[in-house]
Amino acid sequence: MISLIAALAVDRVIGMENAMPWNLPADLAWFKRNTLNKPVIMGRHTWESIGRPLPGRKNIILSSQPGTDDRVTWVKSVDEAIAACGDVPEIMVIGGGRVYEQFLPKAQKLYLTHIDAEVEGDTHFPDYEPDDWESVFSEFHDADAQNSHSYCFEILERR
């Protein structure tokens, strides 16, 4: 099963200049909980913004210009990325925008964090048809001392 995991502000903004323009430790914990011990696929820009392999996960970098870091697996196509994951129950696609666009048609599940923030962004989550998805989990949280904005975790499964 292919799943996408993303944090989205208003207007589906997911990033600005290779960074997330908010401070939500709870979302980072949600991300870790849902990706640990699963292969993660990301684009080169996302890889560069993280700066290191995510521990406890097979890191697969999709790029037309593969790098030389041998701590991760470099691939040039969506099919190659899927094959590099091996026989696993769930593959997690973690961004960025172009990689989400490439995998959305193949995805069966979306793990979304909806952030109540209007922020400037240069990267967006692809538009998706809500009628194609069923919400199977939703959990709202107010902003607090650690988390700069209110947010809602949601899991959607393709109908």
Score class of each variant (00 low, 15 high):
I2M: 05
S3L: 00
S3I: 03
L4N: 05
L4H: 13
L4S: 03
I5A: 00
I5G: 02
A7M: 00
A7I: 03
L8R: 04
V10Y: 03
D11P: 07
D11A: 12
D11M: 04
R12P: 00
R12L: 14
V13E: 03
G15A: 00
M16Q: 04
M16S: 12
E17C: 02
A19C: 12
A19L: 03
P21M: 01
P21N: 03
N23T: 13
L24N: 10
L24K: 00
L24V: 15
P25H: 04
P25S: 07
A26K: 01
A26F: 06
L28Y: 11
L28T: 00
W30D: 07
K32E: 02
K32V: 04
R33E: 12
R33G: 02
N34R: 09
N34E: 07
N34G: 12
L36I: 07
L36M: 06
L36S: 06
N37R: 10
N37L: 08
N37D: 07
K38M: 08
P39D: 03
P39L: 11
I41G: 02
I41T: 11
M42Y: 14
R44P: 00
R44W: 01
R44G: 14
H45I: 01
H45L: 02
H45Y: 02
T46A: 01
T46S: 14
W47P: 01
W47L: 15
W47S: 10
E48P: 04
S49E: 03
I50Q: 01
I50R: 01
G51H: 12
R52Y: 09
R52M: 11
R52F: 05
R52C: 09
R52D: 09
L54C: 01
L54G: 00
P55M: 07
G56D: 06
K58Q: 10
K58P: 07
K58R: 07
I60F: 14
I61V: 05
L62C: 15
L62S: 03
L62T: 15
S63M: 08
S64M: 13
S64N: 11
S64T: 05
Q65C: 11
G67C: 12
G67M: 13
T68G: 08
T68N: 07
D69K: 06
D70Q: 12
D70T: 10
D70C: 10
D70M: 11
V72L: 10
T73V: 07
T73H: 08
T73K: 11
T73N: 05
W74S: 09
S77V: 15
S77A: 10
V78H: 13
D79A: 05
E80S: 05
E80G: 08
E80T: 11
I82D: 04
I82G: 05
A84Q: 05
A84N: 10
C85G: 08
C85N: 14
C85W: 13
C85I: 15
D87Q: 11
V88W: 13
V88S: 12
V88K: 10
V88E: 08
P89S: 07
E90T: 03
I91R: 06
M92G: 05
M92H: 14
V93T: 08
V93A: 14
I94P: 01
G97R: 04
G97M: 03
G97D: 03
V99Q: 01
V99H: 01
Y100V: 01
Y100C: 07
Y100D: 02
E101A: 07
E101C: 08
E101W: 12
Q102C: 11
Q102F: 15
Q102T: 14
Q102D: 07
F103Y: 01
F103V: 10
F103K: 02
P105T: 11
P105C: 11
P105R: 11
P105S: 08
P105F: 10
K106A: 09
A107G: 05
A107S: 08
Q108A: 07
K109R: 11
K109D: 01
K109P: 01
L110G: 00
L110T: 04
L112V: 08
L112G: 01
H114K: 15
H114N: 15
H114D: 11
H114Q: 15
I115H: 06
I115S: 14
I115F: 09
D116L: 15
A117T: 04
A117R: 08
A117F: 00
A117E: 08
A117H: 04
A117L: 02
E118D: 06
E118G: 14
E118V: 13
V119L: 08
V119T: 15
V119W: 04
G121Y: 03
D122S: 02
T123C: 04
T123K: 10
T123E: 02
T123V: 06
H124P: 12
H124R: 12
H124N: 10
F125L: 14
F125A: 04
P126H: 13
P126N: 13
D127W: 12
D127A: 13
D127N: 11
Y128M: 09
Y128K: 13
P130V: 13
P130Y: 07
P130T: 13
P130Q: 13
P130E: 13
P130D: 12
P130N: 11
D131V: 04
D131I: 05
D131R: 03
W133L: 13
W133Y: 12
W133N: 06
E134T: 09
E134Q: 11
S135W: 06
S135C: 06
S135T: 14
V136Y: 08
V136S: 09
V136F: 11
F137R: 12
S138I: 14
S138A: 05
S138E: 14
S138Y: 03
S138P: 06
E139D: 06
E139C: 05
E139M: 07
F140K: 13
D142P: 12
D142V: 12
D142H: 12
A143G: 06
A143P: 04
D144K: 03
A145R: 07
A145P: 05
A145H: 10
A145D: 10
Q146T: 07
Q146V: 07
Q146L: 08
N147T: 05
S148M: 00
S148H: 00
S148A: 00
H149G: 03
H149P: 13
S150R: 10
Y151Q: 14
Y151A: 13
Y151W: 06
F153R: 03
F153N: 05
E154I: 14
E154Q: 14
I155N: 03
I155E: 07
I155Q: 06
I155H: 06
I155K: 07
L156I: 10
L156V: 03
E157P: 02
E157D: 09
E157A: 09
R158G: 09
R158H: 07
R159M: 13
R159I: 13
